[in-house]
């Protein structure tokens, strides 16, 4: 039998084993390279503007320490229109008004909505707001509880906010969800979608490599002048 025969045979058999996965790799890869990663990250959908803190009077550190015994540190920042302080104490974080010291956390629904609207760059209204205790797959790595604020736009933009700090922990939208879904097929981790060292992927990519080599080998024969009669 000629080498070309073996090349074709190898390619065909390996193709049977890995063909569909090769298709999934290419389809998911094409999606991932075609849509800008900035769009996927959703930087255009929600962002906080860099506005300087005002020089207005502010709670002293000692006052904060009195309010939260065991305070290990704090962070002064802006939340929507006011200046606030995140206080770290006892392994937790609490949010207070920087001027009055009024406790702001955990954020209520109205406050969470305000924060989300301020971050959101689109025009659509909020469709739903919910405080969730179990993180859905799309924010599986974030600590709960979480405010989930969904906007009523075509892209189904959803912002996830921390009730303790008011920080935006994640922004999700349909292009991101597709990316994540295809990423799952790309790395073949169908549970967490994060483990790039899973055995299935290692086996499949080994076969894939042999498959590509056999294809290249076959091409070598296809392009050679046909052994004429």
């Amino acid at each position: 039998m000629k080498p070309a025969f073996w090349a074709r045979r190898a390619h065909k058999w390996i193709g049977l084993a890995i063909g569909i996965q090769a298709l999934l790799w290419m389809a998911s890869g094409l999606y991932m390279v075609s849509i800008s990663i900035h769009v996927i990250h959703g930087d255009h959908l929600a962002k906080s503007a860099a506005r300087p803190l005002s020089g207005a009077p502010m709670r002293e550190a000692s006052a904060l320490a009195a309010q939260f015994p065991g305070m290990t540190g704090f962070r002064v920042k802006r939340l929507v229109d006011r200046v606030v302080i995140e206080v770290r104490h006892d392994g937790r974080t609490s949010l207070v008004d920087a001027v009055t010291g009024e406790a702001l956390s955990p954020l209520g629904e109205a406050a969470a909505r305000d924060v989300a609207v301020a971050l959101y760059q689109g025009k659509a209204p909020i469709r739903s707001a919910a405080l969730i205790d179990k993180a859905p797959q799309e924010v599986a790595t974030r600590p709960v509880p979480l405010w989930r604020i969904a906007f009523d736009d075509a892209n189904e933009t959803t912002l996830y906010l921390s009730p303790d700090t008011g920080e935006m922990l994640a922004k999700r939208h349909d292009l991101w969800r597709w990316f994540d879904f295809l990423w799952m097929f790309h790395i073949m981790d169908y549970d967490a979608r994060t483990d790039v060292n899973n055995t299935l992927l290692r086996v499949a990519s080994s076969i894939g490599f042999v498959f590509a080599l056999s294809g290249a080998w076959l091409l070598f024969y296809s392009f050679r002048r046909r052994p004429a009669a």
């Binding site: 860099a50 506005r51 300087p52 803190l53 020089g55 009077p57 502010m58 709670r59 002293e60 550190a61 000692s62 320490a65 065991g70 305070m71 290990t72 540190g73 704090f74 962070r75 002064v76 920042k77 802006r78 302080i85 392994g91």
Partner: peptide
């Protein structure tokens, strides 16, 4: 996890902002 208490004799955040002499967006210990 850091368990050391923040020194209350440190300069206050308002003083730190004022001393910065340039815009500041966030201040962190």
């Amino acid at each position: 996890p850091d368990t050391r208490a923040w020194p209350v004799d440190a300069a206050s955040p308002a003083q730190a902002l004022a001393a910065a002499k340039q815009p500041v967006q966030a201040l962190d210990t």
